[in-house]
């Protein structure tokens, strides 16, 4: 097998879970795997205290912290459109199979989706074989990365709700948590629509 990231050949260590097909085969080599760092920071930014968004997002977990290697991998995944790399993170989402909350990936604007040809968050879940629902719709086509911090906290609500979520417990999934605008906006609109509990899981914490 060749590593999906560095394309060097590697041999997976034999294990019982692999033999009985409990675990999916590894797609990257150990060397590349070691370059990812587990996230340490917990909770969300202080900036959100005192805004209208305070208290809407109940909890936040991130899997990895941001480093140069992660930057390169995400660049290849999102901007070079290498969909296959979604498989790199499939073991990180496998535990969601037993999740009872409604799993909701952050959606993309339809125009943006056409441009990128795939929805990067959906693909992460598809690669891990996790079913999800999509009650959200992105109403504004703006890229978070290109805006300044003040812009982000004050912008209009980015999403609308298109399905009934009354009384539901929801787990939002996103690729990056940077300032938190996306997730706080989504949590806000979902609770306004009647959701009881909204938590979030992101792949990377910047």
């Amino acid at each position: 097998m060749n590593c999906l990231i560095c394309s060097n050949e590697f041999i997976e260590k034999p294990s019982w879970s692999y033999l009985f097909m409990i675990k999916q085969p590894q797609v990257i080599c150990d060397k590349c795997q070691k370059k990812f760092e587990q996230a340490e920071m917990k909770g969300f930014h202080k900036d959100w205290e005192g805004t209208i968004f305070e208290g809407f997002l109940d909890s936040l977990t991130s899997i990895y912290s941001y480093n140069e290697f992660m930057n390169d991998v995400l660049h290849q995944y999102k901007f070079l459109q290498d969909v296959e790399l979604a498989k790199v993170f499939r073991e990180d989402f496998v535990h969601l199979k037993s999740e009872t909350a409604m799993i909701v990936p952050i959606p993309m604007h339809p125009e943006k989706l056409k441009e990128r040809t795939f929805a990067q968050v959906d693909e992460l879940l598809i690669a891990a074989n996790i079913p999800f629902t999509q009650p959200l719709q992105k109403t504004m086509n703006i890229t978070q990365g290109k805006k300044s911090k003040i812009d982000r906290t004050q912008s209009e609500i980015l999403f609308s709700v298109t399905e009934n979520v009354v009384g539901k417990s929801i787990l939002l999934i996103d690729d990056l948590y940077t300032t938190g605008t996306t997730l706080h906006h989504a949590a806000y609109i979902l609770k306004q629509a009647g959701a009881t509990n909204v938590s979030a899981l992101t792949l990377v914490r910047v």
């Binding site: 459109q81 290498d82 969909v83 296959e84 989706l113 056409k114 441009e115 990128r116 040809t117 795939f118 929805a119």
Partner: peptide, 16 residues
């Protein structure tokens, strides 16, 4: 590599 393409709305192929 095969994937589900949102641009051509169906199964598509790309070169890695």
């Amino acid at each position: 590599t095969a994937f589900n393409c949102a641009k051509c709305e169906g199964p598509c192929l790309y070169c890695r």
